[in-house]
Write a protein that binds this DNA or RNA. Structure first.
Length: 492
RNA sequence: GGUCUCGUGGCCGAGAGGUUAGGCAAGGCUCUGCAAAAGCUUGUACAGCGGUUCGAAUCCGCUCGAGACCUCCA
């Protein structure tokens, strides 16, 4: 398989990816709801789609990547007494709703930046697209897919079913869905239990509200994505992504809204990133089973024994396939970190490789690169890509003893390709564990004095002195490595 | 209760009807004053029970276990 294939949740199969308007690719990803801090589970999803964005870009596509910010708040329930989550939190904390939205939006972006996720091309907010959402409701009403009841507007599943199937994405039948319907308050306005809100009339205590032809209220929870994806990517676009938990009902409703309004379901590929679990259970703010991505970098969590670098965390995440459930544990992260650092040092070896050997070695760099592409073309199989990187590291080690393995050109090409895969595609930022310039310089100078002292002690077989120096440095987090060409050090 | 997914060696995690995934850990070896680091190397795993097949971890059925969704949720 030499071209990119992606797993489409809608058809349930791996399909060759061909953009509608090559070389342009339109990609929409459901972003965060900014009423609380994002947790590591959220982060995994966005990093999964960052990987896709990076790989598509790597393949030469011009990608318009739209990821929304849900700042209008979702309903807690379909009940009239239900309130906007953002509004509720606002009262609890005595803050303006938009103040909360601002705080967590900024926090979200900081996390994304810390983990080296590229910013999307457009990051539209729901509150910034109330007009578009109202227009979309008008269209659905005009076409008969929606009805008004007491100032609220609902999408009619029964009407929709006359033209289109419902439940395709999640593979559910209407009967199953009806069987699973729960009795919720405020259903009396709905004609059918599966109908969902497009517009909700705001109760008196509801803070976030906008005028509309039907009532002063707020948009339903699926509407923004339909409105904004259509606005920026068109009625038909290439890829729609989101967390697995959004498959139903969110994406199902989105498709229904899209088809009702435009005749098209929206994206041709629906991609879903799987959950990150903690202690075998899904991360969720509500249960307290969460990990803050910033605590991970600081080492501040009862779940952690130490702090980790963003690169190590990303490496851990991409060592599992995005469609698999990944269970987080400190030990799993430590294992990933060790492997990651080994790859980084392999790059260092390659950078410092003396010119030598034939131009092209016995180990074929182009073939290796082909295997890397092959892995990513198989629905972004980053675990296999990483396995290939370790294969390359093995070749680099062999090349140290025999420069005919890589050859001079081969080594140069391999270095460039490894950096491309690791940094450009996998987004593993080069480790910043070197201090800023002047401190690094000072440390190097101090260390060369210390290592020189130790060298002299060793030469005179004064092992107690040399070992004492080594132990003392280790106490400060400096590991001394004795090699054939003298000693070097590394800060842990 | 309904729908669905998953169960891989000590741990994490790919793959997938017949050919070594990979990482971490562990054992052995090389190097070494010792250690660390690094390199080389070893391990034959696919929940259980049946079935299909020349052949199944990979397909089918059942059992057990775990998880997701059905309600805001990445």
């Amino acid at each position: 398989m030499s071209t990119l294939h992606l797993y489409d949740s809608l058809t349930g199969e791996l399909r060759p990816f061909e953009p509608i308007h090559a070389p342009h690719v339109g990609m929409y990803v459901c972003g965060p709801t900014v009423y609380s801090d994002v947790h590591l589970g959220n982060t995994r999803t966005f990093l999964s789609f960052d990987l896709l964005f990076r790989y598509l870009t790597h393949l030469g596509y011009k990608v318009r990547y739209v990821r929304n910010i849900t700042d209008a708040g979702h309903l807690e329930s379909d009940a009239d007494s239900g309130e906007d989550k953002i509004a509720k939190k606002a009262r609890l904390e005595q803050l303006e709703p938009m103040e909360i939205v601002q705080r967590y939006t900024v926090g979200f972006r900081a996390v994304m930046q810390a983990y080296n996720a590229l910013p999307p091309s457009i990051e539209p907010t729901a509150t910034g697209h109330i007009v578009e959402q109202i227009e979309l409701i008008k269209k659905l009403l005009a076409d008969g897919f929606a009805y008004e009841a007491n100032g609220s507007v609902y999408f009619s599943i029964e009407t929709y079913l006359k033209t289109y199937p419902y439940g395709e994405l999640s593979g559910r039948s209407i009967e199953d869905l009806e069987a699973g319907t729960r009795d919720l308050d405020g259903q009396q306005d709905k004609r059918h239990p599966l109908d969902f809100a497009l517009w909700k009339k705001a109760s008196t205590e509801h803070i976030m509200r906008w005028p509309s032809p039907w009532s002063e209220g707020f948009p339903g929870w699926h509407l923004e994505c339909s409105a904004m994806s259509t606005k920026y990517l068109g009625a038909e676009f290439d890829i729609h992504g989101g967390g697995m938990d959004l498959k139903f009902p969110h994406h199902e409703c989105e498709i229904a809204q899209n088809k009702g309004a435009t005749g098209h379901g929206g994206a041709r590929f629906w991609l879903h990133a799987n959950m990150l679990t903690l202690n075998g259970k899904r991360m969720a703010k509500s249960t307290g089973n969460t990990l803050d991505p910033r605590d991970l970098l600081a080492g501040n969590s009862p779940h952690l024994t130490k702090a980790y670098s963003p690169g190590a965390v990303r490496f851990f995440i991409h060592q599992a396939h995005y469609r698999s459930v990944l269970d987080f544990s400190d030990s799993a992260l430590q294992a990933a970190e060790k492997g990651y650092y080994r790859l980084l040092s392999s790059l260092d070896v390659l950078r410092q490789r003396p010119k030598g050997g034939p131009a092209h070695g016995s180990w074929s760099v182009p073939e290796w690169n082909g295997r890397c592409s092959e892995a990513m073309n198989q629905d972004l199989n980053s675990p296999v890509l990483i396995a290939q990187l370790f294969d390359a590291a093995k070749a680099v080690a062999a090349d140290q003893n025999d420069p005919a393995v890589l050859g001079s050109d081969g080594a140069a090409t391999l270095l460039q390709l490894m950096e491309t895969w690791m940094f450009d595609v996998l987004g593993l930022a080069p480790e910043p564990h070197s201090a800023s310039g002047k401190y690094q310089k000072a440390l190097d100078a101090a260390m060369s004095v210390v290592l020189d002292l130790r060298r002299k002690a060793r030469e005179s077989k004064d092992w107690s002195t040399s070992d004492a120096l080594r132990d003392a440095l280790a106490q400060g987090g400096i590991v001394v490595k004795d090699g054939a060409e003298g000693s070097s050090y590394r800060v842990e």
